[in-house]
Write a protein that binds this DNA or RNA. Structure first.
Length: 379
RNA sequence: GGGUAGGUUGAGCAGGUGGUGAGCUCCGCUGACUGUAGAUCAGCCGUCUUUCGACUGUGGGGGUUCGAUUCCCUCCCUGCCCA
């Protein structure tokens, strides 16, 4: 009887920088990389059913330790059969550790060397999250990939503070590995270090030295420039260049960001952007951004994107979507989200195809051209 | 016909009992959003002006007054009550 392997992976290099094509196998299924994972913080990708997600082409999705432990609690999810059964998503799930909430809920928490104490945004109650408890929660949730608790900071902080958060993240990484709860769950470490190349080099080397199943790059897309993000990915990619494990860029990104990061060696992405902007009326198309609330669209009988095969594009007009958003009808959020997730995952499929047939540069130029303009007003 | 309460910028309101009414909420217009405290947030929303600022505006007309949204007269419109 063999020891269960949490994940298996294989990557093949391409002729585009450090970009590589790959496949990752998890206990709940396989995915091709580079790949994008829609975010379902509270055990739901907002506005979508699992059927919608499958229809949009989603393979792996995210959920969140902090939010699910506050409500409905990890123990309850475990009693109900684990996260997959609880939310009826049979595909792979990656759970974030709550590290991002250390950053986004900065005025509601206190960090010390042992962990983080949050004041719940729901009822004001106090909640303690340590590296060990974050691993325990994720083991209870039963995700395919667990993330270590980390501390990300504003890139503008003094170097000493960025370094301190990085070193704390490193100590937490070791403790997380010591506390890993189940053999069928992969654990990814997280590289920190702000936008300081030396710190990033140190952090990448340290995290890579530990027996993680994958390496995540955190602390980016939090206010730094595109150039700083690219420079940071370049440094980290250099350290990891011989490493066979999956590389996951946390919290990215926009259509343009994918291309820059893939070229620098990233395999996995997650981001709230496609789902969040969809709920406020912004949809992504081959012609760039489009705001469905713009008054001109009220008379536009065409689809959001004529090249898209999603339900919103095959069955409904821009005029109808514009009406739904104006009327604040719930269907607006669902259709716009279906479109953005479908379009984004299709973009990743096209990106992989372009890597395979050496047209990455052309696809990248087309997407960058379309998304450099503020918004596509009409067809 | 009599009485009564009203008529404020698209809508709904606030305010103002002789001394600078452009204030709020909707609606509308535009933008932002990157490991989701987000179906959220921000700006604009009388006219002219990029800004500063200027001008106009309290149902119509007239009167009193240095000055009227406020006081007086008259007309119009709306709600309610009585005939």
């Amino acid at each position: 009887m063999s020891t269960p392997v949490p994940i298996a992976y294989s990557f093949t290099p391409t002729d585009v920088g450090r970009a590589r094509l790959g496949r990752i196998r998890t206990p709940h299924g396989e995915l091709d990389t580079p790949q994008f994972m829609p975010v379902g913080t509270q055990a739901t990708v907002k506005a979508l059913t699992p059927g919608d997600l499958r229809g949009a082409g989603a393979t792996m999705i995210l959920a969140n330790t902090y939010h699910l432990n506050l409500r409905p609690t990890a123990e309850r999810v475990a009693r109900l059969g684990g996260l997959h059964r609880f939310m009826s998503w049979e595909g792979p799930i990656l759970t974030d550790s709550g590290g991002f909430q250390v950053f986004s809920l900065a005025d509601r928490r206190r960090v010390d060397d042992d962990g983080v104490t949050f004041v719940s945004h729901l009822d004001g109650s106090s909640h303690r999250l340590t590296p060990e408890r974050a691993m325990e929660i994720q083991a209870l949730l039963g995700s395919d990939v667990a993330m270590v608790l980390d501390q990300l900071v504003e890139p503008t902080l003094p170097q000493a503070e960025v370094a301190a958060a990085m070193e704390r993240t490193h100590r937490w990484a070791e403790r997380s590995l010591a506390a890993r709860g189940r053999p069928d769950q992969a654990v990814f470490g997280i590289v920190q270090g702000g936008v300081d190349p030396e710190l990033r080099r140190t952090s990448a080397a340290f995290v890579a030295s530990l027996p993680f199943d994958g390496i995540a790059i955190g602390g980016l897309s939090v206010g730094e420039s595109k150039a700083e993000m690219a420079a940071t990915l370049e440094v980290v990619g250099g350290v990891l260049s011989g490493d066979p494990r999956p590389r996951y860029l946390m919290g990215v990104g926009s259509p343009v960001d994918f291309f820059a990061a893939v070229e620098l060696g990233v395999d996995l992405f997650d981001c709230v952007l496609p789902t969040r902007v969809a709920r406020t009326g912004q949809v992504w198309t081959d012609a760039g951004r489009l705001n469905l609330r713009n008054s001109a669209l009220q008379d536009d009988p065409g689809p959001i994107d004529p090249a898209c095969g999603c339900e919103a594009c095959t069955s409904h007009s821009r005029a109808y979507l514009a009406h739904l958003f104006r009327a604040r009808e719930l269907l607006a959020y669902r259709l716009a989200t279906i479109h953005n997730v479908t379009w984004t995952l299709e973009l990743m499929r096209r990106l992989r195809a372009a890597l395979a047939d050496r047209t990455f540069g052309e696809l990248r130029a087309r997407v960058e051209g379309a998304f450099s303009r503020p918004a596509a007003r009409s067809r």
